[in-house]
Computed example of a mutant assay.
Amino acid sequence: MVDAEKWKHFLKVHDFFAAYADQHYGSISEVSTPPATVDAFFSVEVDSVDFYNEILRQFTDIITHIDTLSFKNSGDDSVLVTVCVRDMWKAVESNE
């Protein structure tokens, strides 16, 4: 089942990057959950990554909720940002 607290944090992170992509001629991927993991990933492709003023303040508010963050030049004058939030799901006992 989804960890409710982690889900709130994940939504803040996802919303930040979705808004950033919208403002920087970018796109955001669907959330990916690789098999045999409890982690959630998504990627954002934007024209640049330059956090300043209000954007930097917003980023500092969410950075503690991000477990891994990578930036990669995608080769076509854009930047691919990959975000991971770990432990999104927790095990629950079966009622069987």
Rank of each mutant, 00 (worst) to 15 (best):
54 E>W: 08
46 V>P: 10
70 S>D: 12
72 K>S: 08
66 I>W: 04
72 K>P: 00
73 N>C: 03
22 D>R: 12
28 I>G: 01
85 V>Q: 07
48 S>E: 13
7 W>A: 13
22 D>H: 10
40 A>D: 00
46 V>Q: 04
4 A>M: 10
78 S>C: 09
7 W>N: 13
91 A>Y: 02
85 V>Y: 07
74 S>K: 06
63 I>L: 10
67 D>C: 05
33 T>A: 06
93 E>T: 10
80 L>T: 07
46 V>C: 10
73 N>Q: 08
76 D>R: 13
96 E>A: 10
94 S>P: 09
42 F>W: 02
50 D>N: 14
77 D>P: 04
15 D>Y: 06
89 W>R: 06
43 S>W: 04
74 S>W: 01
1 M>W: 00
34 P>T: 05
17 F>G: 04
60 T>N: 15
42 F>I: 01
4 A>Q: 12
42 F>N: 01
70 S>N: 10
82 T>Y: 03
36 A>Y: 13
23 Q>K: 13
88 M>N: 00
52 Y>W: 09
93 E>P: 09
39 D>V: 00
59 F>P: 02
83 V>S: 05
24 H>S: 03
44 V>M: 11
23 Q>V: 03
65 H>G: 04
29 S>V: 02
47 D>K: 12
13 V>K: 03
57 R>P: 00
25 Y>K: 15
78 S>Y: 03
